[in-house]
């Protein structure tokens, strides 16, 4: 077999991350961060994910996606626990039923940081993983092919459906549909857009089903994949280690045997 022409370049380029390695790293990080249960560790993990997102070139997409999820969540936590926390003892301010307590603010910080770490880890995985590679790897490991179809199909269908909804709206407007007004006209307008959309989607799905059936999609035999997803012994070892560490952390936390960590300067993270 002739040697590839770009061997030198390939030797310098590190092997791309297998989707399962990225998934194992995300699951282990989320589980260990939750088990540690410390706002300082959670914030460190969230910042680490932000740094990795910048390095991977996905920060521009990840930042608004995380902000849309976390901003209302943090606001909700602040109102819920910052202003009303009946278990709180150290009252910082009080206006009638509203009691700002140190314990309530601490609880909001703890839960907000923990959720931020979880969201950042998951979004970093989903924004960096190549879905076709993930589907190919899962199929090779006997995950039902239907799962891969649903995952890949949904992620590619969403933009197409948005485009179709715009075309339906334009077509209905050309027939005299007026958007706006009171609740009832709005409801009627929504119905006039939703019905053609759902009908067309069900019709398309029927045609797709026939095409898939004729190719033996629901068969139980294993299929040959033409997609080669690289994997290395080091990555396989890392996956086992990461999952073992996560399992140990979860077991220690649930059994109540979690070791206390002495923090410098008497900090209570």
């Amino acid at each position: 077999m002739p040697a590839p022409l770009n061997t030198a370049a390939r030797l310098k380029t590190p092997a791309p991350l297998n989707p399962l390695t990225a998934l194992a790293a995300a699951v282990a990080t989320a589980a260990i961060t939750t088990a540690v249960s410390s706002w300082a560790v959670s914030l460190t993990v969230a910042l680490g994910c932000a740094a990795l997102a910048v390095r991977a070139g996905v920060a521009g997409r990840l930042a608004p996606a995380a902000a849309v999820i976390l901003a209302p969540f943090w606001l909700s936590l602040l109102v819920m626990h910052g202003l009303f926390f009946p278990e709180g003892r150290t009252v910082l301010a009080e206006w009638g039923a509203v009691r700002v307590t140190a314990e309530g603010l601490g609880f909001a910080l703890d839960m907000g940081a923990r959720t931020a770490a979880y969201v950042m880890v998951c979004l970093l995985f989903s924004f960096t993983v190549r879905v076709p590679d993930l589907v190919a790897v899962m199929s090779a490991r006997r995950v039902p092919p239907q799962f891969g179809y649903v995952l890949a199909s949904t992620l590619t269908l969403a933009p197409a459906i948005t485009g179709r909804l715009v075309r339906i709206r334009q077509a209905q407007e050309s027939r005299g549909l007026v958007l706006g007004g009171g609740p009832l006209p709005r409801l009627a307008a929504a119905r006039l857009q939703m019905l053609p959309l759902v009908l067309a989607l069900i019709q398309d799905a029927g045609e797709r089903a026939q095409a898939l059936e004729s190719r033996g999609f629901n068969g139980t035999r294993a299929r040959t994949s033409y997609r080669d997803v690289p994997d290395t012994a080091a990555q396989r070892g890392f996956r086992v280690l990461a999952l073992l560490l996560a399992a140990a952390a979860v077991a220690l936390r649930i059994s109540g045997q979690w070791p206390g960590i002495p923090w410098p300067w008497g900090v209570q993270p």
């Binding site: 649903v150 199909s153 949904t154 459906i161 799905a205 029927g206 797709r208 898939l212 629901n218």
Partner: peptide, 12 residues
């Protein structure tokens, strides 16, 4: 398969 192909539509 007829049900399976509807699931992505439902998810969207």
């Amino acid at each position: 398969t007829s049900t399976l192909v509807l699931i992505p539509v439902a998810l969207v």
